[in-house]
Computed example of a mutant assay.
Amino acid sequence: MSEKNNKKKKKNSQMIIRINDQERAQFIELCEELDTSAAREVRRFIREFIAKHNEQE
């Protein structure tokens, strides 16, 4: 990936969400079992959600 593209995708914002402790624990555990991270899966969800809703316009 070029340096220009790398800067464009820089992760520089945070989102704080409130979720049930039990759901969080289950989500983290499942991510670990699937060899992924919670942050990666949340980012993937956001990208897919945006793409899905952009298609509907």
Rank of each mutant, 00 (worst) to 15 (best):
M1N: 12
M1I: 07
M1T: 11
S2K: 10
S2F: 07
S2R: 08
E3C: 03
K4R: 12
K4T: 14
K7E: 15
K8W: 06
K8N: 09
K9G: 06
K9P: 00
K9W: 08
K9S: 07
K10P: 00
K10D: 10
K11H: 11
K11S: 11
K11V: 11
N12P: 02
S13K: 14
Q14M: 15
M15R: 11
M15Q: 09
I16N: 12
I16E: 13
I17K: 07
R18W: 11
R18Y: 13
R18L: 08
I19N: 07
I19G: 05
I19A: 12
I19S: 12
I19Y: 11
I19L: 15
N20D: 15
N20C: 07
N20G: 04
N20M: 02
N20Q: 08
N20L: 04
D21V: 10
Q22G: 03
Q22K: 12
Q22P: 00
Q22A: 08
Q22Y: 14
Q22H: 13
A25G: 07
A25C: 00
Q26C: 06
Q26V: 09
F27G: 01
F27K: 01
I28P: 03
I28Q: 15
I28W: 09
E29N: 11
E29T: 10
E29Y: 13
L30R: 14
L30A: 13
L30I: 04
C31G: 04
C31T: 02
C31S: 12
E32F: 04
E32L: 06
E33Y: 06
E33L: 13
L34K: 14
D35E: 14
T36P: 02
T36F: 02
S37D: 06
S37W: 01
A39Q: 09
A39G: 15
A39Y: 05
A39P: 04
V42F: 13
V42Q: 03
V42G: 01
V42P: 03
R43H: 04
R43C: 06
R43W: 00
R43K: 02
R44M: 05
R44Y: 01
I46G: 01
I46D: 02
I46H: 02
R47K: 12
R47D: 09
R47C: 03
R47N: 08
E48C: 03
E48K: 10
F49R: 01
F49H: 04
F49C: 03
F49K: 01
I50V: 10
I50S: 03
I50D: 02
I50R: 04
A51G: 08
A51T: 04
A51F: 06
K52P: 00
K52L: 06
K52N: 01
K52Q: 09
H53V: 02
N54G: 00
N54F: 01
N54W: 00
E55M: 01
E55D: 05
E55F: 03
E55Q: 07
Q56G: 00
E57N: 05
